[in-house]
């Protein structure tokens, strides 16, 4: 399915009924406050999944890191660029797709994994670069596709759904 990221923003779709799977699609601007607002609406929209506090904070953190990367790098020349987030609840967790029309990742591939090194002296500790590490640590099936001027990042987040099934 082709998705036009320039179409007008849609509100979150919230089936909201216990026992049905949650699907959510949202388009918003990449400004820091746009991203903050979207995260708050996404977390509210996932309410029907009845995530634990720990899982909820993982979802918030992963999406925040992904969206920050889009804002700061893909849309470095476009402070108002639009981001689309698609979330689908599956048996395997929460399926996520994040789409933007900004610059491609360098080399059109995921950046190499940089593992933090706490044994380095403090003055040599980097103040950035932890974002991709956290994304790798907290997701599965992380994949990046450059498709006709769009970036599509997809991944899954494991969440405990035992409460819902019971």
């Amino acid at each position: 399915m082709r998705v036009d990221p320039h179409k007008r923003p849609l509100p979150a779709r919230r089936p909201g009924t216990r026992g049905r799977s949650v699907e959510l699609r949202m388009v918003f601007s990449c400004t820091p406050l746009g991203v903050r607002g979207a995260l708050a609406r996404i977390l509210a929209g996932l309410g029907a999944m009845e995530l634990s506090a720990d899982d909820s904070s993982t979802v918030e953190l992963v999406l925040a890191e992904v969206l920050n990367n889009v804002s700061e790098h893909a849309y470095r020349d476009d402070p108002e660029g639009l981001i689309e987030v698609q979330l689908t609840q599956t048996r395997a967790g929460l399926g996520c797709r994040v789409i933007d029309s900004g610059h491609a990742l360098p080399g059109c591939r995921l950046p190499p994994l940089r593992v933090p090194d706490p044994d380095r002296p403090l003055c040599d500790q980097p103040e950035g670069g932890f974002g991709w590490y956290l994304i790798h640590r907290l997701t599965r099936d992380l994949a990046y596709l450059r498709d006709g001027g769009r970036n599509i990042l997809s991944f899954r987040i494991d969440v405990d759904q035992s409460l819902r099934r019971n």
Binding site: S57, E60, L61, A64, E65, N68, L122, C123, Q125, P126, E127, G128, G129, F130, G131, Y133, L134
Partner: peptide, 20 residues
């Protein structure tokens, strides 16, 4: 209630700028 890698980096930066 929420801290991401930008917040983490800022705290590391704050510790560095306090000096040794």
């Amino acid at each position: 209630r929420f801290l991401d890698s930008s917040g983490l980096g800022a705290i590391i930066g704050a510790m560095k700028q306090l000096g040794s």
